[in-house]
Design a protein around this nucleic acid. Structure first.
Length: 423
RNA sequence: GGAGAGAUGGCCGAGUGGUCGAAGGCGCACGCCUGGAAAGUGUGUAUACGCCAAAAGCGUAUCAAGGGUUCGAAUCCCUUUCUCUCCGCCA
């Protein structure tokens, strides 16, 4: 949620910047401002009535103590009138607040200055590209065939036991998963992130706080008997650790990381983009999360993208970094960089990480604040990024490193896998 | 799952219908004391919203969450959540 304060202070700026996300905000913003005014007026008169009742209650107490029961009872008549008035005002206040809230949650986060407007992924800007794109022979296999050839992953068994999009990893394929998870976690811890292992299900409050509810309700697996949601990313439990908290400015930035399985229903996906590891219902990911001082969050964003780029370099994968245009960015994000690796057999770029600064948008909903140098309590900024999501990394590793006598494992991973070739 | 006990400020803990945002202690901050420190001592120490140009100040709300009784609720009643103890079950 955009803080109400921001809307009061610079409504025109918000309206202008949201156009970058192709969002027409003028009407909503105007309605918000007039509801806000109404809310304050209502609250003022409610507070006055409540003050009056409190005063009367005190006086009645004194009268009873002095045994002046008749006078006390006489005053009680007046309070019942006030009570009716406060009841009505409270209803009005609740109603106005609810209407206000419903409008505010519809506004997406304000794009940062660097973000350009655009309709779709076609308008994204490549800001960095590194590594050599391998030229494979015409007999190069896509990863789903390599997975079968070397018995690393079984999509069929997954479909039998659970359903499409829930693969089994087998033998060296399973070991490779474990190796990547350990490698990513070790790298994150070395970069100063505190490691967490999190619950894989969260309650409704948490899903709301990080913004999965209500918008993305259909994208999460839901367990109705206990009203719990399977996490689509470790961002949800990790960020919720800081729901309703005030941190000291000296503790910033807070750096957290977690490996988790991620569960996504991916309703509506189909076709060749979902072949093999390209899109799964359950996958593994290491996530990094930071809570930053508002003055520092863009510096922190750069550090996070450098961390991700470093991982891809160590894995010797050709990659590019893309700044998303307004139209392709998520609702909550102020700026997002995607990392894509080149998958040589499929001959396309696959997204493996998305690093975003949510500025104070997510923190506002989370009520995640910090006490600044002067003791004032302010909203913090939150950021997160994948570092990294496994399946497409595996796809690219298998495809790009295939040779006639097997698949080479990058040097950085060998200490974790215990083997340097899959054959 | 069954039976019982409980949830109060950063922490511990008092408070069972009135002047309680809440005693006392610890912690923390600042000052005094000291050559310096410890000890001692004094003062201060929640959050949200509103009024106000702003500060000061004032008002309102908040004692797990929500609802109710009452002129008045931390205190009484109901619901939910969580914690602890015992029993059952179990990786």
């Amino acid at each position: 949620m955009i803080p109400l304060q921001t809307l009061r202070e610079k409504p025109q700026y918000v309206i202008e910047r949201l156009k970058v996300k192709n969002f027409e905000a003028e009407e909503i913003v105007n309605n918000i401002l007039s509801l806000d005014e109404e809310r304050r007026k209502t609250q003022k008169s409610l507070d006055e009535k409540l003050a009056e009742s409190n005063q009367l209650a005190r006086e009645i107490g004194v009268l009873f103590k002095q045994g002046r029961t008749a006078e006390a009872n006489e005053m009680k008549v007046r309070t019942s009138l006030l009570k009716e008035e406060t009841r009505e005002l409270t209803e009005k206040l609740t109603f106005t607040e609810k209407a206000l809230d419903e409008l505010i949650v519809r506004l997406p986060n304000i794009p940062a200055e660097q973000v350009k407007s655009g309709k779709s992924a076609a308008d994204n800007e490549v800001v960095l590209q590194e590594g050599n794109i391998p030229s494979l022979g015409s007999d190069a296999l896509p990863h789903w065939e390599l997975a079968q050839k070397y018995n690393l992953i079984s999509f069929e068994l997954g479909a039998k036991v659970t359903g499409a999009g829930f693969p089994f990893y087998i033998g060296k394929g399973a070991k490779l998963q474990r190796a990547l998870i350990s490698f990513f976690l070790d790298e994150a811890v070395a970069a100063g992130f505190l490691e967490f292992e999190t619950p894989l299900m969260v309650n409704e409050d948490s899903a709301f706080a990080t913004g999965q509810l209500p918008d993305k309700e259909g994208q999460m697996y839901h367990v109705p008997v206990d009203n719990l949601y399977l996490i689509p990313t470790a961002e949800v439990p990790v960020t919720n650790l800081y729901r309703n908290t005030v941190v000291k400015h000296s503790e910033l930035p807070v750096k957290l990381c977690a490996y988790s399985a991620c569960f996504r229903r991916e309703a509506g996906s189909y076709g060749k983009d979902v072949r093999g590891l390209n899109r799964l219902h359950q996958f593994d990911k290491v996530e990094i999360v930071e809570i930053a001082h508002p003055d520092e969050s863009f510096k922190v964003l750069d550090e996070m993208t450098s961390h991700v780029a470093g991982l891809l370099r160590k894995l010797e994968l050709p990659f590019r970094m893309v700044r998303l245009c307004g139209g392709d960015m998520s609702f909550t994000s102020a700026i997002t960089y995607d990392f894509e690796v080149y998958s040589a057999a499929q001959q396309k770029w696959l997204e493996v990480s998305s690093v975003s600064n949510f500025t104070d948008f997510q923190a506002n909903r989370l009520k995640l604040r910090f006490k600044d140098e002067s003791g004032k309590i302010r909203l913090a900024h939150t950021l997160n990024g994948s570092a990294l999501a496994l399946p497409r990394i595996v796809a690219a590793l298998l495809e790009n490193n295939q040779t006639e006598d097997g698949i080479n494992v990058p040097q950085a991973l060998v200490p974790y896998t215990g083997f340097n070739k899959i054959s």
